[in-house]
Every structure is written in C-alpha cells, then in structure tokens.
Design a protein around this nucleic acid. Structure first.
Length: 490
RNA sequence: GGCCCGUUGGUGAAGCGGUCAACACACCAGCCUUUCACGCUGGCAUUCAGGGGUUCGAAUCCCCUACGGGUCACCA
C-alpha cells in the first residue's frame, strides 16, 4: 500500500442521511483513518431535478453528529476543490471532449420514446434491455441531418466488444463481467451535465481516491467505470462493495418501509446516542477478527484500530432493531446522568411535562427523575412514557394494583402511612421516606411485601416500578397525600 | 430474460480441511430485589439451504438444484 489511503463518501443531496449511507461513510472513514489517510465527502449533485434544498447540509450535519469527520469537503475545502459535482462541470467537459475526439464516445440522438420502445421490445423477446446502438456508427451527414431537425444529443461511451472486465474487489474477490453484456451507456446529458458513472470516475481519479467503498448495488456499475478509467489512463482504485442492509423481515428496504427507521436524523431525535449508532452500524456486515470477534462494544477509536475492509461480509445484513436498542441501552447506562438528562429535557418539554425554562431546583428534580429510569431506557424519548405517573394529578390503579389494594391489611397500612406523611416536617427526601415506612412497620406490624406493595400501588397505581423511596420523594408530599387520601376516601 | 452476488440457530455472527460449530441479541429457567428494571448463573444449531462429488477427514474445496438479492436509467 504505497499510496496514502484516501477514501470518500459521495452522496447525492436528495434526502436525509440513510442508515445505509451512514454505514458506507463509516466504513470509508474507518479505513482511511486506520491508515492515517484522508476521508473526503463529495457531493454528487448532477441530477439537478432531484436535488433537495437542505439535503446536503443536513446529511453533513448528521455525519458530524456521528463523529465522522472529513478532511476535505464542500465546507472545509481541500486540494481538489471544488467538492460539488455541479461546480466541476468545466472539468467534465474537458474529459468529455477527449473521448469524443478519440471516438471512444459519440453523440446519441435517440429520443426517450425510441429508447423506451427498444427496451420493451427486448424485454418482450426475453433479451437483456440495453442500448441497441442506433447512433453508434452514424456518418457525419446523418448527424448533421439529425441536428438540423433540432434533435438534442446526449453522449454515449462506446463499450468495446468481446472483452472481459475483471474487478478485484476486496470484499468479493475477483468478479468479472463481459463487455458484451453492457450496452453503450450515457455519460453526458444533452445539456452537458455528466451522469453518475462519468462524474464519479473522473472525480475519484482526480481526487486520488485509492479505495472506493460503497454498497453492493454499485457492483455492476463498476465495469463501466473501469472502462472509463482505462479510456483516460487513470489508475484504477481498489473497490470494496459492502452487502445490502435488509429490514428486520429480511426483505429489501423500501422508501416507505414501516418496519424500520431509516434515517440518522430520526435516531438522533429519538434519543439514540451516536456511539451506539456507529457501533451498531459497524457490525452490520462486518465483524472483527481474532480475539476481538468475541466482543461487540467498540468505540470509534477502537473501530479505527481493528476495522478492515476484507472482513466485510458478502452476505446481506439484516437490520436487527432489538439489537440496536440493546446497544443503545448499553451506552445510555454508560453515559453520565447529566448528558442523558440534557437529552431527556426536550422530550419532557415537548410532552408538556415540564416548562421550557426550568430553574436550578427543577433541573435537579428532573435529573433525579431521569436517574430513576436511566438504566432501562432503550432510547431517551421513552422518558416521557416512563415517567408519566409523576405528572398525573390522580393515578389510575392497574388491575394488579387493585388486587393488592384489596388485601386486608391495606387500610391499616395506608392509614398509618398517611399519618406519618402528614405529621412529617419539611421535604420528603428518600432517607426520610425510609424512616416513615419504618415507623409504619412499627405501628402496624406489617412489613415486606405487605407493607411496600400497598404503598406502591396506592401512590403509583402500579405494582412495579423504580425505587419506591426515591419515587415518593420525587412525587413530593402534596401529591403523595392527595393520592393516598383519594384512595382511602374511595 | 442476460450478467453478477449471496445462503451457518428467531437475529447479528465466529469459523478459511481435523476436539462435543465461538460470542452476542432475543427467548426460557433460576438467583438477586419490597416490585419492575439492572445484574448474575444456566439452558437454547446431533448441525452449517438441499443433493452429489474430492478427501483418511468438509460448515470449510468442486459441481448441480432451490431460494433470496443486485443490475441491465439522460438515479445515484
């Protein structure tokens, strides 16, 4: 590996950062960083009709949130600027001219109607749909005739016949394609804008990309690009095609797939942590080697260390949402309570649970509340439902709670507890609650389940939940009293 | 339809010719706990899509079949 390793992630600005794109970016980034090389983000915006206004910015923000840092791109520039295809049209024109001059490319005057008919005919005849070569060998006269008709021309690359193109793929090994199976493909649209295969090849070559990492759907594009590399005498990079990501049902993901959340932004909003997403994505279609294969919790730095393209799997990877939740829960438990609280507060505000401007003591209260549930959250947005009972005026007793509250000793126990709370001076901190419960035990003689379950059921409406003393303390004297008295009054 | 690719338990997967096929998620059981959650312990593929070979020996190599997928765009 003589050259400095340079990889790139080249999205089109047509939407949000997708989990598949994020994984590709991650793999590319890890590989470059492992070798002390450069990671480039380049925007492939040649399909101007489909471009979406904020997409570029949003995708890069999502990448940054994940902690995937680029060395060269549209915002920070770099030695190969510009990094947006549509700002590189002059470059493409020059290379296009070369191909036209050498007759390796030719103008095509076919209309989309003609092309569509060809296609249908081939399909009907059970043939591979590909360009039939109508404009391949037009004479000068025929060309000018079409041009005087006012026909627009795109430019096609002349695919040589009878050749075998070998792709030495790091993931898949040697894969070969016959050029006879590839039709002459369009490299420039009538208005001169390059198509993907053309732009990506020139950009990768000029930007000195050494390793092209991308999804499997690009594998069959690769021979076309190799043809282009050859036509220009460019050095061919190494390729690594990562397997597709399937939804939890093992099916190909579609745009409107309800079974899976597909965009990084959405995970961020739900309160997934970037380190969990990275860790999970890294393991989607890749596994560490050797002794590390028994572990699965890895930081970005560790991943940078142990990642290797040749360990990428050839088989498609199923997106296991359960595993993602488990992993995120792991990182939530590991994170500081302050960090999780800061993430939780917006959710609580949005749900109308707390005010958008909270003071210090309220913040302390919220922190304690979040702390009560930190270890069981799969993602931070769950905090709203998890803490619901702390914001209710009155509780509704679950069926189990009703059963508990129907027990014989309950009026005695609750009555005694009410007495304790009523006569207690000052705040109810957990230690105080402990003492009060102890006192109830003394005066009533009930202890353990017979004591705690009725109190829990009456106060929270549930027979299970987090630490009772802390819960009562957080609920506060007033609300606890209201709930207990409401219960006794029934 | 042509060309490519893939197939290890419910899921992610290790395994690259030689013990009873790692590990993790999920699941089940037990322990811990006033309850839940967390945590801990144990269980969970007589078998590697199916069928043929090669070999003393195959999940690992070869062939065929089945199934799944990618692609054949003036989309990336």
């Amino acid at each position: 590996m003589a050259d400095r390793v340079r990889t790139r992630y080249a999205p089109s600005p047509t939407g949000h950062l997708h989990i598949g794109g994020a994984r590709t970016a991650l793999f590319s980034y890890l590989w470059a960083k492992k070798h002390g090389g450069d990671f480039i983000v380049r925007i492939e915006d040649t399909d101007t009709e489909r471009n979406v206004v904020d997409a570029e910015e949003k995708q890069m923000a999502a990448l940054a949130w994940l902690g995937i840092q680029w060395d060269e791109s549209v915002d920070v520039g770099g030695p190969h600027a510009p990094y947006r295809s549509m700002e590189r049209t002059g470059i493409y024109e020059e290379y296009l001219k070369r191909l036209l001059t050498s007759k390796q490319a030719y103008p095509c005057y076919c209309t989309s109607e003609e092309l569509e008919q060809d296609r249908e005919r081939q399909l009907a005849a059970g043939q591979a749909p590909r360009y039939i070569g109508r404009c391949r060998d037009l004479t000068e006269e025929e060309r000018s005739a079409r041009e005087s008709e006012g026909r627009m021309s795109s430019v096609r690359f002349r695919v040589p016949a009878g050749r075998k193109i070998l792709i030495e793929d790091i993931v898949r090994g040697d894969v070969s394609f016959e050029t006879d199976g590839i039709g002459d493909f369009i490299i420039a649209r009538p208005d001169g804008r390059p198509t993907y295969n053309f732009a990506v090849t020139i950009d990768d070559a000029l930007m000195e990309i050494t390793d092209v990492v991308r999804g499997e759907e690009h594998l069959s594009n690769t021979p076309r690009q190799i043809l282009l590399y050859e036509a220009f005498g460019f050095k061919i990079p190494r390729f690594a095609h990562a397997p597709l990501i399937l939804n939890p049902e093992g099916k190909k993901m579609s745009k409107r797939d309800e079974s899976i959340i597909q965009f990084i932004d959405q995970y961020k909003e739900l309160g997934y942590l970037p380190e969990a997403i990275n860790n999970f994505l890294a393991l989607l279609g890749w596994a560490p080697a050797g002794e590390k294969s028994e572990e699965e919790i890895f930081s970005l730095d560790e991943l940078t260390d142990i990642f290797s393209l040749d360990r990428i799997s050839k088989a498609p990877a199923v997106f296991d949402t359960g595993k993602l939740k488990w992993m995120n829960n792991h990182y939530i438990k590991e994170a500081s309570l302050e960090r999780i609280t800061d993430l939780a507060i917006p959710h609580l505000i949005k749900a109308g649970r707390i005010d958008s401007s909270i003071n210090e003591s309220e913040k302390t209260w919220v922190t304690r509340l979040v702390g009560l549930y930190q270890e069981q959250m799969d993602y931070v947005a769950q905090i709203t439902d998890l803490t619901a009972l702390f914001f209710l005026e009155e509780v509704e007793h679950s069926q189990e709670a009703k059963t508990v509250l129907a027990e014989e000793q309950v009026p005695t126990v609750i009555g005694a507890f009410v007495e304790q709370v009523k006569t207690h001076e000052g705040e109810l901190d957990p230690e105080e609650v402990k003492k009060l419960l102890k006192a109830v035990q003394k005066t009533t003689g009930f202890k353990g389940k017979q004591l705690f379950m009725p109190v829990r059921a009456a106060v929270t409406g549930e027979t299970h939940g987090p630490d009772l003393r802390e819960s009562i303390s957080l609920l506060g004297k007033e609300r606890v009293m209201t709930r207990l008295e409401t219960f006794l009054g029934q």
